[in-house]
Amino acid sequence: MVGSHKARSSTAERVRSRTKFGGYRAEYSPPTEKDPDSGKKTVQYGEAILKLLSTLLPTIAFCFALYQYVDQNERDFRKSVYEKQASYYEAMSEAVADIIVRLDGPESFAELINSKEYKLSRYKFMTLYYGKLNLIESPEVERSVIRFRDLLERYEANDADIRLSDIKLAGLSVSEVCSKSLQKTWGLDPEQFETKIIKQ
């Protein structure tokens, strides 16, 4: 009886069945009883995850809001610069056109150069040339405006090699280059540029 009890006790503690498979022995161990503390550990782990998420989510939300704010400010700034560029280019084109129209007027050259109206037109052009146009002009616009100014000064100095037609062509070039620069800035083709910018 004692031996039988010990055998049952030993079997309750650990049961092994051995079977031969091609010279190898396979051992089977029955599952042990479930740890009663494992459920508590799972709950504690879940609570830790929730606490971590409750800490991280506000931070993530703040970072996302900050990104949106910075991105919106950057877009607003670029839009402001683009609009100023368009405004300055338009002012320069008008100043150039005003000079050319006055040079092509009925007055004699001497009378025109000394007239208050021509001096005002030239003043507007030079103010843009030395002033705010430099803030946003492209290299192509800069070169075309410099060329117009140089030809104008030579024409005003009675340079025989410079004709009024040269001034007109240089003036048209300024407007054309300004237009192309704006198309590049806004990412528009000529048709879109005419529809969205010029006709506004």
Score class of each variant (00 low, 15 high):
Asn114Leu: 14
Glu142Thr: 03
Cys63Asp: 04
Ile113Phe: 07
Glu194Tyr: 09
Thr55Lys: 09
Arg16Tyr: 07
Arg149Asn: 12
Ile198Leu: 14
Leu182Phe: 05
Lys199Tyr: 01
Gln68Ile: 11
Ser17Gln: 13
Phe62His: 01
Gln85Met: 11
Asp71Asn: 07
Glu153Pro: 02
Glu47Asn: 05
Lys184Asp: 11
Phe109Trp: 12
Ser181Gln: 11
Lys79Thr: 08
Phe109Ile: 10
Ala26Ile: 15
Val141Leu: 13
Glu140Gly: 07
Asn134Trp: 00
Val145Pro: 01
Ser17Tyr: 05
Ile146Cys: 02
Ala26Tyr: 09
Ser144Met: 06
Gln85Leu: 05
Val2Ser: 11
Tyr89Phe: 10
Met126Phe: 08
Val145Asn: 01
Lys116His: 06
Ala86Thr: 09
Phe125His: 01
Asp37Glu: 11
Tyr45Met: 06
Asp161Tyr: 08
Val81Arg: 12
Lys51Cys: 01
Gln183Leu: 04
Glu111Asn: 15
Met126Glu: 15
Thr42Leu: 05
Val141Asn: 13
Gln72His: 07
Leu53Pro: 00
Val15Arg: 02
Leu112Cys: 12
Leu120Trp: 10
Phe62Met: 04
Lys20Glu: 15
Tyr129Thr: 01
Asp159Gly: 04
Arg75Pro: 00
Arg25Asp: 15
Cys178Gln: 09
Tyr69Ser: 10
Gln68Asp: 08
Leu182Cys: 03
Leu172Trp: 08
Pro190Asp: 12
Ser138Asn: 11
Phe21Cys: 09
Ala7Asp: 15
Phe64Leu: 13
Arg102Trp: 11
Arg147Asp: 10
Tyr123His: 14
Gly171Ser: 08
Val96Pro: 02
Asp35Gln: 00
Ile49Trp: 05
Asp150Trp: 01
Gly22Asp: 14
Phe77Tyr: 08
Tyr130Asp: 11
Ser175Val: 05
Lys196Met: 10
Asp166Gln: 09
Arg16Leu: 11
Arg102Val: 12
Gln44Trp: 02
Thr11Gly: 12
Phe148Lys: 05
Asp166His: 15
Tyr24Glu: 15
Thr59Asp: 02
Tyr130Asn: 09
Val141Gln: 13
Glu107Thr: 14
Gly131Tyr: 06
Lys41Arg: 11
Tyr123Asp: 13
Ile167Gln: 04
Ser9Glu: 15
Asn73Pro: 00
Tyr130Lys: 08
Pro106Leu: 14
Ala7Trp: 14
Ser115Met: 05
Asp35Phe: 00
Leu120Ala: 13
Leu182Glu: 13
Val81Thr: 04
Lys116Asp: 12
Leu169Lys: 14
Val2Gly: 12
Tyr129Ala: 01
His5Thr: 07
Lys119Cys: 00
Ser138Lys: 13
Tyr45His: 06
Asp98Arg: 12
Val43Lys: 12
Ala95Pro: 07
Thr55Cys: 06
Thr59Met: 04
Ser54Ile: 06
Lys124Leu: 09
Arg25Leu: 15
Asp104Glu: 15
Glu13Asp: 06
Tyr24Pro: 05
Cys178Ser: 13
Ser4Val: 05
Leu56Arg: 02
Ile100Thr: 09
Asp76His: 06
Ala26His: 10
Pro139Leu: 01
Lys51Gln: 03
Cys63Gln: 05
Leu169Trp: 06
Val101Cys: 10
Lys196Val: 07
Gly131Phe: 04
Leu172Ile: 10
Arg25Ala: 15
Met92Ala: 10
Pro139Lys: 04
Thr59Val: 08
Cys63Glu: 02
Met126Trp: 03
Pro139Phe: 01
Glu90Phe: 03
Phe193Gln: 12
Trp186Gly: 05
Ile113Cys: 04
Lys124Thr: 08
Asp35Lys: 00
Ser108Asn: 13
